[in-house]
Every structure is written in structure tokens, then in C-alpha cells.
Amino acid sequence: MADPLPGDVIDRVEYDVERGKVREFTRATFTTDPVHTDLPAAREAGFDDVPATLTHTVVAGHQRDQRGFVDALGLALERVVVGSVTWTYLRPLIAGDHVIGTRRVVGDERREGKRGGTMRVVTLETEYVAADGEPVVRLEEVLIERGEQR
């Protein structure tokens, strides 16, 4: 299978931002700000509902076909590590939002490793839009596929 080209769509995912899931992420990330768990506190802070924690979009991983995504990229999963993940928020995600994320390839290159051998570096961007089409979050992921062991 040929490597995907920059601009190619790898997958799409959609899900609802649920208050209960926001509460779970709040606990899991040791977030103590009550705006994430207490509706009156959220409203007092100017939100319509409780805002999601900053890494909430990782919930999309439970909705995606992970094997299909890896296969579409032509990666050997056993040799893949995550190089970095960056979130850019255009507005907070709020409980009640319905978001659609489209993940695209923005870069795919082979590099020589410092210890010899080559590695593949794939950069992906997922743009999440609200149900009305408004962009809300951009997520950039850099995946590194280490060369085969000899």
C-alpha cells in the first residue's frame, strides 16, 4: 500500500461531549477547578455548561477504528511511538457539544536516526468542528515509526 499523501483524510470521528465523561476526565487528570464538575460554578464562570478538560478529545480514541487507522497509514504498530501531541483550542468544549473530528496527514517523511537506521515521522492534524461547523479544537500528533531491528 502506498503511503498517504499530505492532505489525505485518514479517518473521521464524532461524539458528544458528555457531563459524565467530563467528570471522569476531571478525576483522571487530578483537575480541581469546580467549573468542570459543578454546573452553578461553570455558569458563574460564564459557561453555558461544564467545560471539558483540556485533553478531553482523547475520548475520540474510543470511537475510532484504531487498527484501520494504523493500516491506512501503513505503519507497523509494534514499532510506533508518539513523538508529541499538541492541542489548540479555538473555544472551550462544553458538555452538550457534538463534535466531528477529521484527521489528515500533514507530513510524512523518512529520516536517518542518530544511531543509524531510518525512521518514519508522520504528522497528523485533527480538526474538531461543532455541529454548526464552527472549528473548536485542532490536535496535532507526531508519530514515529522506528526502523526494523536487524
Rank of each mutant, 00 (worst) to 15 (best):
H36C: 06
T37M: 07
T37C: 10
T37N: 06
D38C: 03
D38R: 06
P40W: 02
A41T: 03
A41E: 06
R43K: 14
A45P: 02
F47G: 04
F47T: 03
D49C: 04
V50N: 03
P51K: 00
P51S: 09
A52I: 05
L54C: 04
H56Y: 15
H56L: 02
V59I: 08
G61H: 11
H62C: 04
Q63V: 14
R64L: 07
Q66E: 09
G68C: 08
F69K: 11
L73W: 12
G74W: 04
L75C: 06
A76T: 14
E78N: 11
V80F: 03
V82Y: 00
G83T: 14
W87F: 10
R91L: 05
P92T: 13
G96R: 07
H98E: 12
I100S: 03
G101D: 15
G101N: 15
V106T: 14
G107F: 09
D108L: 13
R110W: 07
R111D: 00
R111F: 00
K114M: 14
R115L: 04
T118F: 13
V121W: 07
T123R: 05
E125H: 11
T126H: 11
Y128Q: 13
A130Q: 08
D132H: 07
V137E: 09
V137P: 01
V137D: 11
V137Q: 00
L139Q: 12
E141S: 13
V142D: 02
Q149A: 12
